[in-house]
Design a binder for these strands. Structure first.
Lengths: 136, 136
DNA sequence: GGTCAACAGTTGACAATGTCAAGCATCGTC
DNA sequence: GACGATGCTTGACATTGTCAACTGTTGACC
């Protein structure tokens, strides 16, 4: 019964830690004036990616990817390139998009709580526990 | 360099796990037709609480507590009771609020990923790691 | 070859969860 | 008694999404 409460509180703190990570991310990308989801999407674009794939990777609605793409295209960081299947649009980084992606990457990794606060062994523990929580 | 990436991905998975917890919570309280923050606030009201204290405990703006209180009062689960300091409003559970709080408590603890997926030892590990992430 | 279900992307409307600034009443202090 | 600090409220707004409906394209089956 007390165990029940301790588990719930642990859950609360876990969520707080996650929110701290998100806040760190948001703070790190502040200078670039990108929305958080746009920055996340940018980091996933190592090569031209179909929008559908992005919505899978970010686990969000396809329509949301449309809006992120609008933002990034409006800023000149990506182009929409029609795919072989002409229903598909690939999002491809422009040259300035590549630079922006590198800047974002540098900023968010320089600021990474997980790396700054945890040893390698602790990260491995955490990775294991998170996998358990996510149900494998 | 690869370590940098592994840390970032671990952070992403940690956030995913937290979002899973939040989704579990939201699902558990679905039958009660309470908003998530209202349900969280309810769980904190073991005794009459000044609104200010709630905004500290939920780490959110005071004005947001006003809205949560409006919701809970509108549903008949709490009353606003003026405190000794007459600037302060205490939120006090009504009888039906007490019952609702118990229902919510039962629903969210029955559904707790942390307890269901982790052994006691693993929960202690996780607690330690989360404390490190939160910077003590 | 024509039909039709399924799929990708877009758009508009909306929901949830907040924050911020301004204002009001009250309090404690000088 | 005046005044700055505190607690609550209200209105406006931001962020991060979801859902339903639509368009255009594809692949598969008759």
């Amino acid at each position: 019964m007390d165990e029940v409460n301790a588990s719930r509180e642990l859950g609360v703190r876990l969520v707080q830690a996650a929110e701290r990570l998100k806040a760190d991310f948001a703070e790190a990308i502040l200078p670039f004036e990108l929305s958080v989801p746009a920055a996340r999407a940018l980091l996933l674009m190592d090569e031209p990616v179909p929008m559908r794939v992005l919505s899978d990777r970010l686990t969000c609605d396809q329509s949301y990817i449309t809006r992120i793409a609008d933002e990034l295209e409006g800023r000149g960081f990506i182009q929409r390139v029609p795919g072989a299947d002409r229903r598909v649009q690939l999002l491809k980084l422009t040259r300035s998009g590549i630079r922006m992606r590198e800047s974002v990457f540098a900023a968010v990794t320089a600021n990474n709580r997980v790396q700054l606060h945890l040893s390698r062994a602790e990260r491995e523990q955490l990775d294991h526990l998170v996998a358990l929580l996510l149900g494998d």
